[in-house]
């Protein structure tokens, strides 16, 4: 598990956040704090609101009510310019990497450096190659097109892009989804090593329990848009919470209702 060096002051704080799509209430009074330097993993079934929560934090979606603070700054209602400034200290690894097809690998990695931090192309390319090295990809990959890479490699490039600017906060959206167990383990190790190296605060969305326990200092379980349990990762096996027990055992019977017809 990642070394816990976090302080008590929350780096990210969500207070009573609500978000609906039409009549469907996806987030209901969701509250969660993530300490500085902490690695928090949010787990939960599909459609429980994990990705929506992440998009609300990043400003990609606007919640109807509630408060979201990043480093003490309320981000809801922020102007686009202020939000751009706030996001300069963050990195994000998307579920399917979301690499820019029109740019070679090194420009994908160096994108934030060049566009948001004003680093010159030559210097940015050198940094990109260095970051690619951190995720186990050689300099020969730098000029390749993202579409020529396997999904595992794309995720590693996405990870290199997320850490390229040495951000204070990194978000990971289902980092091991769609990967074989070995590649999933490689990505988990890379995430742990990179974040430890940077001392960054991380928020990971996952439903892979093994990955969650490996990456996280703490784990939070979301069900129907609210946090039903949050605690240290090593205590999840003995949480005594019926929701957590059902989720980690993958049991069809329990308090978590599924949107499928039971046989």
């Amino acid at each position: 598990m990642a070394a816990s060096q976090h302080t008590d002051a929350p780096m990210i704080s969500l207070k009573n956040v609500c978000k609906s799509f039409g009549k469907k209430h996806v987030l209901k009074d969701l509250s969660l704090d993530i300490g500085k330097g902490e690695s928090l993993v949010v787990i939960g079934g599909s459609g429980t609101g994990k990705s929506v929560m992440l998009k609300c934090i990043l400003g990609l979606l606007q919640p109807e009510s509630g408060e979201i603070y990043i480093n003490g700054q309320q981000v809801i209602g922020m102007s686009p310019v202020e939000r751009e400034k706030t996001l300069r200290n963050t990195g994000m690894l998307f579920q399917y990497a979301a690499l820019f097809d029109s740019l070679p690998v090194w420009e994908n990695v160096a994108f934030g450096l060049m566009q948001a931090h004003g680093v010159k192309r030559k210097e940015a390319k050198d940094i990109a190659i260095e970051k690619l090295g951190l995720v186990g990809l050689g300099p020969e990959m730098a000029n390749k097109n993202p579409s020529a890479l396997s999904i595992g490699m794309q995720k590693r490039v996405g990870l290199a892009r997320a850490i390229a600017t040495n951000p204070e906060i990194i978000f990971f959206d289902e980092p091991t989804t769609g990967l074989d167990p070995i590649m999933g383990d490689v990505i988990d190790n890379l995430i742990r090593d990179c974040t430890e190296h940077l001392g960054a605060t991380t928020l990971t969305i996952s439903h892979d329990m093994e990955s969650a326990q490996k990456i996280g200092d703490r784990i939070a379980l979301i069900y129907k848009g609210s946090v039903v349990w949050v605690g240290p990762a090593k205590e999840i096996e003995n949480s005594g919470n019926p929701y957590v027990e059902q989720f980690i055992n993958g049991d069809i019977n329990g308090p978590i209702e599924l949107d499928i017809l039971k046989p």
Partner: peptide
């Protein structure tokens, strides 16, 4: 459109690019 559905536009926002 492809950039939208593959989250590349969201990625631009997270990289502080309008």
């Amino acid at each position: 459109g492809t950039m939208r559905v593959t989250e590349q536009i969201d990625a631009l926002v997270t990289l502080s690019t309008n």
